[in-house]
Design a binder for these strands. Structure first.
Lengths: 143, 143
DNA sequence: TTACGAATTGAAGCCAACTTGAGGTCAAGC
DNA sequence: GCTTGACCTCAAGTTGGCTTCAATTCGTAA
């Protein structure tokens, strides 16, 4: 059972066959044979698909991903770019944290309007500052 | 200087006027008057836009965001839903952290092919398991 | 008062990443 | 040998989040 046909890959990877065909079309993966009309894949493709899925979850475009782990799974992207991406992820994690805190606050805050709640305003303000770092910030202490 | 017209909002928030019109069209923000043809906004809209920007940076769709902080910037969602969101964010943060670590590893790993690096394989494997447990991450490339 | 620039509208366009549909092919099981 | 159903191709459609465009309307400065 050396090769997997597309249906099996689809089932095992949880990726629709149409998406697999699309990935092949754009050169992200490749099938190695046909059985009749059916594409046959090497089992390796499952790992590639895991990578692709990871990359997507991290916010990379398919183009980026194919630059990182090309058709043969070897990385093309310079290390620096990868570090940049990782740093961007750090930033993104901070955003998520701020949003989470804001959300929790919003859920619990007794103030009639959030616009009037200093805690809320502070959270939003901080988030805003992070996003446009480098821009001069004028914060009035609200609490 | 009670109301801001669209150009001023655009400048202050750093959001193109076309996007503001779009946001109004889909009910995410609203203008309160016109001066001639020009939309006039209450200054509050700047805060709403900060929230929207936060949500976007955190990977939420405009639909999600409008469910969180409706048209007037006041949350529409029941408290429980907000807490659920917050918890989901917590899991998402963990996942992003793992992805970041993987990426950093990829950038630094000396192995000729990632497929041959045990550390890498373990990370991918873990990520895959996490995702399969039902964690959905939908993030887009940041602006 | 006239020109200018900033805004208006609605429709169309754009990109990524797929999905859907119609019509065709084929390997395997009965 | 025929049916079945999984697959094929190619084109067109979809979604989200805008942008761009042409034609038009204003408010303001000169």
């Amino acid at each position: 059972m050396r090769l997997l046909d597309i249906g099996e890959v689809s089932r095992q990877a949880g990726v629709p066959a149409s998406a697999l065909r699309y990935y092949e079309e754009i050169g992200l993966i490749s099938s190695v044979a046909r059985r009749g009309l059916r594409r046959q894949f090497e089992p390796d493709v499952l790992l590639q698909l895991a990578l692709i899925s990871m990359g997507k979850a991290a916010g990379f475009s398919l183009g980026d991903i194919s630059a990182m782990f090309g058709r043969d799974g070897k990385p093309d992207l310079p290390r620096k770019d990868m570090h940049d991406r990782a740093n961007e992820l750090d930033r993104q994690i901070l955003e998520l944290t701020a949003l989470r805190d804001t959300l929790r606050h919003v859920a619990d805050c007794p103030a009639p309007s959030h616009m009037e709640c200093p805690t809320f305003m502070r959270l939003v303000d901080l988030a805003g500052k992070r996003r446009r770092k480098g821009i001069k910030v004028r914060l009035k202490t609200l609490d």
